[in-house]
Amino acid sequence: MPLPRKRPRQQRSKETYDAILEAAAQLFERDGYARATTNRIAERAGVSIGSLYQYFPDKDALLYALGERHMLGLTSRLLVTLSELRSTNPPLPQTVSAVVRAVADAHTAEPGLQRLLYDRAPRPRESAARLREVQQWIAAEVEHHLHRLAVGGPNRGLTALLLVQSIEAQLHGALLDPPEGCTAAQVVETVESLCLRALARP
């Protein structure tokens, strides 16, 4: 499976790497995977095709790197949100809403690229393991708030993990392809409602 050839270490190399990735994201979003050739990506990034191939052997490697960037962005958004929740300790509805909307924000940016990542991005074993690590980290934070709010049943660790996984799956699919007549805002509100009902005390 084609992966990025190497990671940049020097600042100038990092700037080149980031410029290529951003150019790929823009062209994939605007023109689709088939029309966004490596030559056009290199031209948009302002680098030679040789410089592009120094880091990325083909478009699949670019998709892989964009998937990693997406996961890093999601993690950063959630880190900010979860830190705020730790400091403010809001009631259950606001806590659920903050988590759901942080995940939703990551999926509503660059929708064309998101669809491409969902449909075509390579998913090697390392990426799957990293995703599980991120989910477990988020679940640990969610479990903290379940304890704080005295909801989630006797096995709050399991409840937190299932909540995190279900929120990600529901938002990813429904925000890419909302049911006819539904807006993204309605999708997010419905996911929040489902989480609150699942956490309702008996």
Rank of each mutant, 00 (worst) to 15 (best):
E110N: 14
V164L: 06
D177H: 08
T190Q: 10
V134G: 04
S193T: 07
E110W: 12
N155F: 11
A169T: 05
C195I: 00
V164K: 03
R35L: 14
L171M: 06
A42L: 03
G181M: 09
P179L: 09
L78P: 04
E15T: 08
S97C: 04
P202Y: 01
P4I: 10
L158E: 15
T108W: 00
S193E: 07
P111K: 02
A19F: 03
A140D: 10
A104V: 09
A121S: 15
R35T: 13
T159H: 05
E180T: 14
S83W: 01
G46D: 07
P2H: 05
R77C: 09
R40F: 04
L175T: 09
R44L: 15
L158G: 10
V151R: 14
L162V: 13
R7V: 04
R101D: 08
R197A: 15
R86E: 15
Y118C: 02
I20E: 02
D31I: 02
V142L: 01
E141F: 12
Y64I: 02
D119F: 09
L194H: 00
Y64C: 06
L92A: 15
R69P: 05
D177I: 00
A25R: 10
Q165R: 12
A150Q: 13
G46R: 03
I49K: 07
P124H: 09
L116V: 12
V96C: 05
A36R: 00
I20D: 03
Q114N: 11
L85G: 12
R148C: 11
